[in-house]
């Protein structure tokens, strides 16, 4: 999903529409009580929270900080340290271009530039139609296939800058599972 639904009323139908804010916060409280006592539980709690909300808004970070007995500055510090976490809503498709060492030397930077040009956005930004967000990855553990690009959970290997335009068209046409579809299953 790309943004918080305006309505706070719980979804009572059995359809596949997005969960309401109330439902998401109820899930968040479950996540907090599941992880709060576990050593190193903050990171998995943040990961789960991000998958529920699509990003980590300030209200969620505050709730997690309170639940974990940590300061907001510390939790925000952890969130901003890891490139996986985002404070802003992301697009339907999150494009992460790896710039780890192997990908970098095999042209990851050129691939990134091609995405910037095609999508007309900078790293960390989302297209105005909320379709694509662009991020830099720091190694996905697939160095043998460098340069690697991940779009949501789909890995693209040995990406050539010239292929980026075609890739984007394929993604829009359904080659990748969209974020909102994945989270609700």
């Amino acid at each position: 999903m790309t943004s918080l639904p305006a309505s706070a009323a719980p979804c009572s139908c059995a359809c596949s529409c997005e969960p309401s804010e109330t439902e998401m916060f109820a899930r968040l409280d479950e996540v907090i009580s599941e992880y709060r006592e576990k050593p190193g539980g903050l990171i998995p709690a943040l990961q789960t929270a991000q998958s529920v909300f699509g990003y980590l808004p300030e209200t969620v970070i505050r709730r997690i900080a309170e639940g974990f007995g940590k300061t907001v500055s510390e939790v925000a510090g952890v969130v901003t340290f890891y490139s996986f976490f985002t404070l802003h809503p992301r697009g339907k498709y999150l494009v992460r271009v790896c710039l780890g060492t192997a990908c970098y030397v095999r042209g990851g930077k050129d691939v990134l530039d091609a995405f910037k040009k095609k999508l007309q956005i900078e790293v960390g930004e989302t297209t105005p139609d909320r379709q694509f967000s662009l991020e830099v990855g720091r190694c996905f553990g697939a160095c043998g296939m460098a340069p690697v690009v991940m779009v949501n959970d789909t890995v693209y290997q040995r990406v050539k800058p010239a292929r980026v335009g075609e890739m984007v068209n394929q993604i829009v046409a359904g080659a990748v599972v969209a974020a909102s579809e994945k989270e609700h299953t």
């Binding site: 300061t71 500055s73 925000a76 510090g77 340290f81």
Partner: peptide, 10 residues
């Protein structure tokens, strides 16, 4: 015990 400051970002 205040914790107003923390490293933000990377």
């Amino acid at each position: 015990g205040v914790g107003a400051l923390f490293p933000q970002g990377r």
